[in-house]
């Protein structure tokens, strides 16, 4: 209980809410304490990610996880996203399960014109049907950009806007809703997972340039 309170407090301080959280087959989680995962897919760019999951002993399944992802490109470290947070199963029937996840995000973007650093948050709810060798569930999430730092290059100042104001920008610089399905196949100590869905911006009227996401993942339960 104390652990859960600390987690919730931490998540609240991050101002967290979540989207592409760790995709798990809750039915096969069992006593596994350490899980690693890798994945790739389209998440506002063709991206690759690695993650680590730690299961906390509690009455309901509860995991903490950290994730690091980078998009494709020549410069591998100019853009990235890190997430840290947790997921809690709040509905834990034999086959029907529902979970909520909260994650804090730190991400960076750079192109020849600007460097952006953002603190954001993700919240996600998942409800679905779980068996020992497969699962299928619906997911709905919200990714909120809380505060963003802008640092423009000389190229931007020379060719676009010399008086641009650098610094931290808030209130929020944006947000996206995500909804779709997640499914997976489990065998031995492994899960193969797939998330696929649509993205709309927070006004529900506009979309990103590519309004879809998909993520193929692979989980390995260490012990």
């Amino acid at each position: 209980m104390k652990t859960r309170l600390i987690l919730i407090t931490l998540l609240y301080l991050f101002g967290m809410h979540s989207t592409h959280a760790q995709t798990m087959n809750w039915k096969t989680l069992g006593e596994s304490k350490h899980i690693v995962n890798v994945g790739f897919g389209w998440d506002h760019s063709l991206s690759y990610n690695v993650g680590y999951v730690y299961q906390i002993k509690s009455k309901l399944p509860l995991i903490l996880n950290a994730n690091f992802s980078i998009p494709s490109g020549d410069n591998l470290v100019d853009d990235f996203k890190t997430k840290i947070g947790g997921q809690l199963v709040v509905l834990n029937n034999e086959k029907l399960k529902g979970s909520v996840s909260l994650h804090g995000i730190f991400r960076r973007y750079e192109n020849p014109l600007v460097r952006l650093v953002n603190f954001g948050s993700e919240m996600k709810g998942v409800f679905g049907y779980y068996k020992t060798n497969y699962f299928v569930a619906g997911e709905f999430g919200f990714d909120k950009a809380i505060v963003t730092h802008f640092k423009h290059s000389e190229l931007f100042k020379d060719n676009v806007y010399a008086e641009v104001t650098d610094g931290w920008y808030q209130p929020s610089t944006g947000g996206n809703f995500n909804y779709g399905i997640q499914t997976g196949y489990s065998f031995s100590r492994y899960d193969l997972t797939l998330n696929i869905g649509k993205v709309v911006t927070q006004d529900f009227k506009t979309t990103p340039l590519i309004p879809f996401y998909f993520m193929l993942g692979f989980n390995y339960k260490l012990k």
Binding site: H44, S45, S72, Y109, K205, P208, L209
Partner: peptide, 26 residues
């Protein structure tokens, strides 16, 4: 080109910079 840096440069910021249709500045 799907794997190119220029592709990430065009799409990646969509995750934390969004604006409504009347938000011309954004």
């Amino acid at each position: 080109k799907l794997l190119a840096e220029t592709t990430s440069d065009v799409f990646y910021y969509d995750q934390f910079l969004t604006g409504r249709e009347k938000d011309h500045e954004i």
